[in-house]
Design a protein around this nucleic acid. Structure first.
Lengths: 343, 343
DNA sequence: CGCTACCATGTTAGCGCTAACATAGTTTTA
DNA sequence: TAAAACTATGTTAGCGCTAACATGGTAGCG
C-alpha cells in the first residue's frame, strides 16, 4: 500500500448517533451503555439513569444489525405460510405475533404461495438473518429444505397438522376431522354424500380430511365421490361447486366441503336458487369461520382453534428459547364439531 | 492485559461456513465471492461458475446481518398496519408483499393494534434494522413518531387515505366515498338514513366517510344520525347494529354502514328476522368484499382497489429506491360504487 | 509505442455492536 | 484479617461482510 495516503477511509453509514457517541456524551464506556439498554439490572441505578437520559437526549436508536452480528442472535422469528388469502393462516399468524411481539421478538413473514421451492428459498434467506426460530405451516418440505434445516440448531415449529415433525409440532388431526364430519353426516341419515375440495394437491390437508371422510363412508358400504375445483377456497368457487354437484350428481343428499368459504358460497348460492337446506341438499364445511354462524341456516362445520394454535406454538418455541424443559414435542389442539341447521 | 495469554479469544457464531471459507476453497479472495453472489456481472464468467459451484458444494448461506452492517443497507421494508383482523389490510399487504418480494425485499410486518404509541415503538425498532423504506397505513402519527421520521432519509409511504403526507402517499378520498354513497342513497329516495360505524376514534377513516355522508345529507336539509358500535367491524357487530337501529330509529329507511362486515352482518340478520331488503330497510356498506356479492340481495357498496393500492405503493417506493425520477408524490387510486339490490 | 481506459481481482479497513476477559473497589466468609 | 466472592465498569478483539482504494493485465488508439 502507498506510504503516506492514510486518508482514513471513512465510511459512516447514516448520521444516526452511535453507542460510542452516547457513551462519550454520558462519560462512560460503550459497553456500559450497551448494558444499560440490554441488561439494566447489571448497571448501577445512578449510572443507568444518566445513560438513559443521554440516550433520550441524543435520540439514539440502537443499530440492531450490528447488535445481531456481534451476538450472532437476532430477535427474529421466521414464519412461513402458504397464503395470506386464507383467513385460517391469518389467525394463526395473529396468535404467533401476539405472543412473540410481547416477548420482544419480531416476525419475519414469508409467503410461499403453496410453492415448495419458494419455501426453500425463503428459509435460506431467513437463515441468513440469524433467526432465533422457524415456524412453518405444514409438514411437507422439499428435500433441499430438509437437509438445510437438518444442520440448523434452533427451534423449528411445524403447525397446522400433526405427524412426523422435524422438531416441535402443534396442530390437529385432519384425518380424524374428516372422519368426524362423515360420521355426523351418516348419523343424519344422508347416504349420497359428495366431498368437494379445491386444489387438493396444494391444500393437502383438505385431502387428508377427504381420506378420513372416505374411510368412514367406505366402512359403511357407501361410495365416496369427490369433486375437485380448480380455484382455491372462495365463495365463488363454492357457488360453482354447488352447481357442479347439482349437474353431475343429481341424487346427492349432502355435500361435505373442504372448508367454510366453499360451503358458505354454496349455501348462499343455494338460497339464491331457491333450494331448501338441508331438505334439498345438506351442506357442511370446515374451519368454523364466523360467517358460517351468520348464514341461515347456520352452517354445520368443524371449528379449529387457530389463534390458540398460533399462541401455543409461540409459547412452546419461547420455552425452548429460554432453555426450559421440553415437556412434549407434539401438541394436539383438537377441534369441535359445530352442528348447525345446514345438515 | 496479561502478557502471554494470547488465547485467541474465539467467538464463532454458528458452524455455518463463511465467505472466507468459500473463498479459500475456491482459491479466490473473499471479495470475489461476494461479487460473484451480489454483482455477478462484475466477475469473469469462468471464475463465477467456479465460485458458485463452491458455494453450492459447501452449502454456504450468506450472513445477511453482516452484509447489512457492512453496507448499511438491509433489504427490509417496514410495513405497519393497525390490524390483521381486517381483510382490507391483508389485501394491501398482499399487494405490497407480491411486489417487494419479487425485487428481493423482505417485509417486516408490524401490527399496532390501533395504538399510536405502539406505532412509535415499532418504527423505532424497524429503523434499528436499517430498513430501506417504510410503508405505513394512514397519515396519523404521534408527535414523537413524526420527529423520528423527520430525520430519516429513506422513502416513507403512507397508504389508505390521501392528505398531507410525510413523503409518498397512495390512497383514496374517504370523505368523497362517504359523499358518494350518501348521494346514491338520496337518489334512491331514502330520506331517513342512519350511519352506523364502529370505534370511529380508532377507525378514523370511517369517520371521514361519515363526515362526507353528513355533508351531503345536511346539504339536502336532512338530519344525519349516527350510531357508534363498540366492537370493530365484524358480522356480529353488524347484526347488533341492525337491531339497535330497529330499536332506536324505528322510522329509518336506510342504513349506511361503515364497512361491508357490518353491512353483511346486518343483512344476514335482517333476513333471519324475516325483514325485506330494501323494502323494510335498505343497507349499504363500504369495501367491496366478495361476501357482499354473494348475499341476497347483493350489497350496495363501494369497492376500493386494495391489492392494487399495495402494488402501486410498492412500485412507487421501488422507483425511489432505484433513484428514479419522482413523478408524483401522491396517487389517488379511486373507488367504484357497486349498486346491488340492497338499496 | 506510449498513453489512457478498462477489466478482473485483490488488500485493507472498517460497519456498530457485544462476548470475553480484566480490573478496581466493596462485602462476605472462614 | 487474608482470601474468596461479588459488584460495577472498562479494555480488547472480533462478528462476517462490503466500500474504497490498489494493482496488474489487456485492449484501444492516435
Amino acid at each position: 500500500m502507498s506510504d503516506k495516503r492514510k486518508t482514513t477511509r471513512r465510511r459512516r453509514g447514516s448520521e444516526q448517533p452511535t453507542l460510542q457517541q452516547v457513551a462519550d456524551a454520558a462519560g462512560v464506556s460503550a459497553i456500559t451503555v450497551s448494558r444499560a439498554l440490554n441488561t439494566p439490572e447489571r448497571v448501577n441505578a445512578e449510572t443507568r439513569v444518566k445513560v438513559l437520559a443521554t440516550v433520550e437526549r441524543l435520540g439514539y436508536v440502537p443499530n440492531l444489525v450490528a447488535g445481531s452480528l456481534a451476538s450472532s442472535r437476532s430477535r427474529f422469528i421466521a414464519v412461513i405460510v402458504p397464503s395470506l388469502a386464507n383467513a385460517v393462516f391469518i389467525e394463526v399468524i395473529q396468535g404467533l405475533q401476539d405472543t412473540f411481539e410481547r416477548q420482544g421478538y419480531q416476525i419475519l413473514l414469508g409467503n410461499t404461495d403453496y410453492n415448495i421451492e419458494r419455501e426453500y428459498q425463503l428459509i435460506r434467506t431467513f437463515l441468513g438473518w440469524s433467526c432465533s426460530a422457524l415456524v412453518t405451516a405444514g409438514l411437507r418440505h422439499s428435500e433441499a429444505c430438509r437437509s438445510l434445516l437438518g444442520n440448523w440448531d434452533k427451534p423449528i415449529m411445524e403447525v397446522m397438522e400433526l405427524g412426523d415433525a422435524l422438531d416441535l409440532n402443534v396442530g390437529l388431526d385432519h384425518h380424524e376431522a374428516g372422519r368426524c364430519m362423515a360420521r355426523h353426516l351418516l348419523g343424519q341419515d344422508y347416504r349420497s354424500i359428495v366431498y368437494v375440495g379445491a386444489c387438493l394437491d396444494r391444500d393437502y390437508r383438505a385431502r387428508m380430511r377427504f381420506e378420513g371422510h372416505r374411510e368412514v363412508l367406505q366402512a359403511a358400504g357407501l361410495a365416496a365421490p369427490m369433486i375437485e375445483l380448480d380455484q382455491l377456497g372462495s365463495l365463488d368457487a363454492g357457488a360453482a361447486g354447488l352447481e357442479q354437484v347439482l349437474d353431475t350428481c343429481p341424487g346427492a343428499h349432502a355435500i361435505h366441503f373442504a372448508n367454510d368459504d366453499l360451503a358458505a358460497g354454496a349455501l348462499l348460492r343455494a338460497r339464491r336458487l331457491g333450494l331448501t337446506i338441508p331438505g334439498d341438499i345438506a351442506i357442511a364445511g370446515f374451519n368454523g369461520l364466523p360467517l358460517g354462524q351468520h348464514v341461515t341456516p347456520r352452517l354445520t362445520t368443524i371449528r379449529s382453534p387457530r389463534e390458540d394454535m398460533g399462541r401455543l406454538a409461540a409459547e412452546e418455541v419461547l420455552k425452548r428459547l429460554d432453555a426450559k424443559r421440553v415437556t412434549r414435542r407434539q401438541h394436539d389442539v383438537g377441534f369441535e364439531l359445530l352442528i348447525g341447521g345446514s345438515t
